[in-house]
Design a protein around this nucleic acid. Structure first.
Length: 278
DNA sequence: AATCATCCCAACCGCACCAGA
DNA sequence: GTCTGGTGCGGTTGGGATGAT
């Protein structure tokens, strides 16, 4: 057979292939094949005439649905979400690699989890997806003075800010701190597990910025995976601020009750009570 | 009850890599 | 060296389920 005829035969074969959802009987055939020969030789399933599916399709079906010990139908636990977020930050979109760290999860599971998470974030922060470039972040010609959160004895009183965040585990008052890009920032001192460098623009609010990968509290407090989220403040925000723009600002007065969106932080683990801080 | 928006997931597609002929 | 088939991976899509209005 010459090359052209072989190609045409191959095309005919592919045309004959079944697509779409798998039937119970097909699954049984596939399972039986794997029992006999192990999870390999996927193409032989087609060549033996067992199924009108491509080897690729068979492999995918086995890996994603039929393999034993899969957590099919189970939502990602907070622990799993945390793992995905950590490993994604570490490895990037290497879903197969990430999936090896999660028992019973497939690369497809991880990928789907991540993409729906991204969509959710994009919906909450619409402009961040329109342009993830930080070039739109306004620059400033001055810095506010530093008021990093002090973890003092009186912090219990300071935690009135907590109510601003509903269930969100922001357990320290918000302060304005400088960041290295010479932009004034609102610092959310104890958010854990925020995606590093996540671009942030809150519509309807006059500030814009991005979360950074912070850790200044980690060692001192022994809270691994804790950090700060720093949000540079846009000029209009500062203009609407108090005359204390170079000192601590009353950020609470400028933030709506529904800020930040609760599910933006739905992977945040509960933090220990401030009374347990050293 | 109907419609719309969003979420979730299964499956497909295209590409890259590898091994064997 | 190169062609071919098999396999694996990441991106994307389509459709059903669910929730909101």
């Amino acid at each position: 057979m010459d090359g052209k005829r072989r190609m045409m035969a191959h095309d005919d074969e592919l045309r004959d292939m079944k697509k779409g959802p798998w039937k119970f009987e097909e699954d049984q055939v596939l399972i039986s094949h794997v029992k006999k020969y192990g999870p390999r030789d996927w193409s032989s399933i087609r060549s033996k005439g067992l199924l009108r599916r491509t080897g690729k399709s068979c492999r995918l079906r086995w890996v994603n649905k039929l393999r034993p010990h899969l957590k099919t139908g189970l939502k990602f636990s907070p622990e799993e979400e945390r793992t995905v977020i950590d490993l994604q930050a570490q490895f990037g979109n290497k879903w197969a690699k990430i999936a090896t760290h999660l028992a019973g999860r497939t690369d497809n599971d991880v990928k789907n989890f991540w993409s729906s998470r991204q969509k959710r974030l994009a919906r909450i922060l619409p402009s961040s997806t329109a342009s993830s470039s930080t070039s739109q972040i306004p620059t400033f010609d001055f810095l506010p003075s530093v008021k990093a959160p002090e973890l003092s004895q009186s912090r219990e009183e300071e935690f009135g800010a907590k109510s601003q965040f509903g269930e969100v585990a922001c357990t320290s008052p918000i302060s304005v701190v400088p960041v290295e890009q010479q932009q004034p920032c609102i610092s959310f001192p104890q958010f854990s597990l925020l995606q590093p460098d996540y671009p942030l623009l809150l519509e309807g609010h006059d500030f814009i910025g991005r979360f950074e990968a912070p850790s200044f509290l980690d060692d001192e407090l022994g809270h691994s995976a804790l950090g700060t989220a720093q949000v540079p403040i846009a000029p209009s925000f500062q203009a609407s601020g108090t005359s204390e723009s170079h000192s601590e600002m009353d950020i609470n007065s400028l933030i709506d009750d529904d800020f930040p969106p609760i599910d933006l932080f739905d992977v945040i683990e509960p933090l220990p009570s401030p009374s347990h801080w050293s």
